[in-house]
Simulated scan of single mutants.
Amino acid sequence: MNVLIIYTHPHHNSLNGAFLKEIMKGTEENPLVHEVKIIDLYKEEFDPVLVFNQEKKRRDMHKDPDIRVYQEKIKWADKIVFVYPIWWGRPPAMLLGFIDRMFAANFAYRQTGGLLPEGLLKGKSAVCVSTMQGPTNYPLFFLQNAHKMLMKRALLQYVGIKPVKFFEFGMMESPKGKHEVKLKRIYNYFRNISK
């Protein structure tokens, strides 16, 4: 199994950085994981701005040479792991901009003339590991699960990626946040993950 981690946090000395380390440690100890690659969007100074105009046609977005290296990594991966904070009830704009540019027609999906397109990233699965300041159940009770609906239904399943597993960790800025327990949970999950 090839694992691609897409890390979206401006700081490595953070709880998101700690989760990244546990994911790396767990996958390194997992005999079913062949190789792990990381896309660190902030460190790589990825440009999340989607541009199409007279020179850059929207229908040609999948041919953009600036994103070819990222497309190859997505094609290579069996499992894509997203690590990010939840800000304002959703992933950071950097990650959403990455998805805007990556999930282009004729790379991530193809229109079929029917109600839904054909997802071209079938056969891949995803894990979303996210942190938030508020309680874990805040997105469920106050935002009608908007974060999960966005990532799972509107984005990942739309292009054929499924299943999608979520770890939403709340109270991460609180001393009562049980950080060590949550970090251990992530380590164990990736150490034993099979597909």
Rank of each mutant, 00 (worst) to 15 (best):
I39S: 04
E35N: 12
K21D: 13
K165H: 00
R153K: 11
F142R: 04
L121W: 04
H34W: 00
M132D: 01
P163D: 00
W87R: 05
Q111D: 14
Y138C: 04
Q71D: 13
L4K: 05
L121Y: 02
P175K: 08
L156M: 14
Y7W: 07
V83L: 15
P65K: 06
W76C: 10
Q111E: 13
I99F: 15
N145V: 04
P91H: 11
M149P: 01
P48F: 10
H179P: 01
G160C: 13
K148W: 01
Q157H: 07
D78G: 04
V36N: 02
F141G: 03
K43D: 11
L50A: 03
G123W: 00
Y7G: 07
W87L: 13
D78E: 14
P117F: 10
M61I: 09
R110H: 12
P139R: 03
L20K: 15
P163M: 01
V51M: 10
A146I: 03
N137W: 14
S194T: 00
I193H: 00
L96I: 12
Q54A: 15
F19D: 04
L32W: 01
F46K: 11
K73C: 11
E55P: 03
H9Q: 08
H11I: 15
H11F: 02
M102E: 13
I186K: 09
F103C: 05
E45W: 02
I38E: 09
N106E: 15
P65Y: 14
N13T: 12
I99W: 06
F103R: 08
Y7P: 09
Q71Y: 08
H12G: 11
F19Y: 15
A108E: 11
L116G: 00
K73W: 13
G170P: 09
A108I: 07
Q133L: 05
K122H: 03
D64R: 12
N192P: 02
H12K: 15
G160L: 11
M132S: 03
K182A: 03
F19M: 15
Y70Q: 11
P163T: 00
R90N: 14
I161L: 07
Y42N: 07
K148L: 05
L143S: 05
L150S: 04
N137D: 14
V51Q: 04
T136K: 12
K122E: 01
